[in-house]
Design a binder for these strands. Sequence first.
DNA 1: TGACCGTTTGCAACCGGTTGCAATTTGCAC
DNA 2: GTGCAAATTGCAACCGGTTGCAAACGGTCA
Lengths: 333, 333
Amino acid sequence: MLGAMATLKDVAARAGVSRSAVSRTFTEGASVSADMRRRVQLAADELGYRPNALASSLTTGRTKLIGLVSNNFHNPIFLEVFDRFTRGLQQRGLRPLLVNLSDETDPAQSVRMMRDYSVDGVIVASSTLSPSFAQAFKDEGIPVVHSFGRFSEAPHVHVVGIDNVECGRMAARALIERGYMRIAFLGGPEEATSTQDRLDGFLEVASAAPGVRVTHTFARAYSFDAGREEMARLIDKGPADAYFCGDDVLSIGALSAVRTAGLDCPRDVAIIGLNDMEMARWENIALTTIHQPIAEIIEASVNLVVAMFDDSDVEPTATLFPCHIVERQTLVS
Amino acid sequence: MLGAMATLKDVAARAGVSRSAVSRTFTEGASVSADMRRRVQLAADELGYRPNALASSLTTGRTKLIGLVSNNFHNPIFLEVFDRFTRGLQQRGLRPLLVNLSDETDPAQSVRMMRDYSVDGVIVASSTLSPSFAQAFKDEGIPVVHSFGRFSEAPHVHVVGIDNVECGRMAARALIERGYMRIAFLGGPEEATSTQDRLDGFLEVASAAPGVRVTHTFARAYSFDAGREEMARLIDKGPADAYFCGDDVLSIGALSAVRTAGLDCPRDVAIIGLNDMEMARWENIALTTIHQPIAEIIEASVNLVVAMFDDSDVEPTATLFPCHIVERQTLVS
DNA sequence: TGACCGTTTGCAACCGGTTGCAATTTGCAC
DNA sequence: GTGCAAATTGCAACCGGTTGCAAACGGTCA
């Protein structure tokens, strides 16, 4: 169609004005007369001109690119997360540059990469990465928010998420209140910060409850298979009465193992999950679980990273959103 | 840490060489002596210098940015798709710029956006978008590949995917071979190209089979709820013996409805899906389904878009990968 | 008519790189 | 030591924009 892409210069020539005039026409709030703007627009339209966002970023220092870094590409809840993040960013005129932090890749490399592309900010979306990973971006001078990250009283970077320790407590209380006496935590991978925190809270409450026997084990991943395998193993050894599973996917795997073993879910082995992902509502699953307010977390994360554009040096904050239990059918009521 | 990011000029000054020398040191295959390279490297390391990818794109004309455009942010299989795309691109040194084509946003806007950011290419990952959408990128001179797109003998843009019509035939044959006499297609949204094609193939074979009664309906989306609702409705009216469901998610929803109605899945109502997503293997689902070779499709798509960098004007091709049925437990054997 | 002020416009330098070309250096054979 | 080709280096222009500054313009008021 067009031999080459029209540039500022072409438009200026065609409209018979200076390059600055063209630039100003396409810059919000610049000083241009209505007449000039009309002439430039006309020439621009004829040539199909659009400003090159990358070229202008050179002088303005803003790319409107946001790094979206995650290592959770196997947990269905993250599709929901990506959906919301991309929409939230797009609505604000920002573009997500997606980084898949698969285990092989060196994390430091992704930091360099983000710097190479001069992203305006980075959102680390992961409940398993250590706080130090997000910090690496800050050290490079890149605004960063850690979504679903580990809470800290005095975080080094902005953290938005839930209080995993409190969720652990909440789960323990829920099980104890319902009269379960042998309860257990079936966690995600031991090295995940979310697993550690949820366990801490769970044990804190459970071990303080008189007469309650509490145990815990870890699955090798937040995945269906890992949950199923671990629960199968536990059933073999004689299971507890009720389990707090590290997350919903794990819960669904565990649930499957329970049923395969010919046991009934709330009656023989009860389960409470965490996340309240879409699937938890499916009527063949009907998982009782702790709801994590994803939408709020993401909204807050995006707002935070945007706020940092203007004032990059605000004190890092930890924003926690409250969770609540959604009653379905995997716990006696 | 560093007041500001070090630039080429800073490094040149520090090393006492010309700016060109620094540039060449960081350019593959440029003419620099070993001695020079050492001096520059030293200065660069001391300053923590890294070349600005966007600035260089200005002269090289390559950004290594690839637009990844999709409107499927609710089908769990697309998490797998995004995972594979991001890894495939990253391995080749490319960065995915994710675009969420949610229904509200004007498609034309995403085309402009990609142009503004000078992406080297675009991958449209969607089985529901019309071919003309992908074409819009081509019209702007942007290399584009439509993954999971509709097959055409003479496509306007590169298409990589499966033969949906053939899948429809395959499903019909599978049901007929197994002796089901009243079969039906429970499709995705009627306007999705994949739904249309699968229906065509299904009807073609089914209506040619003597004594076989065939019907079809559409769910309002490729989603669990839509599948469950539609199947519940069908059960009310008296269901067919066996259903080809538009995809796995739909199948799982339908399966749920079948069980909720107190029916047994292969015996009373049989189901075959399409996709073979991870969940189809879950033992509480065990869906018999047509396997779609996602990995191959994505690998081929990425290769294709990369190949277009060098030669943008190759004749558009349609690459189809064969599918096969994976036997599990929702069809009699 | 001229002084004065606010707007609009263009010039030219700059953002952080790349690259063609010519000048300089190097290596090697004689 | 000389001659010549190949390898290395720097200069300067360029990629596609933005922006501070000063000149030009337009209008008002005396």
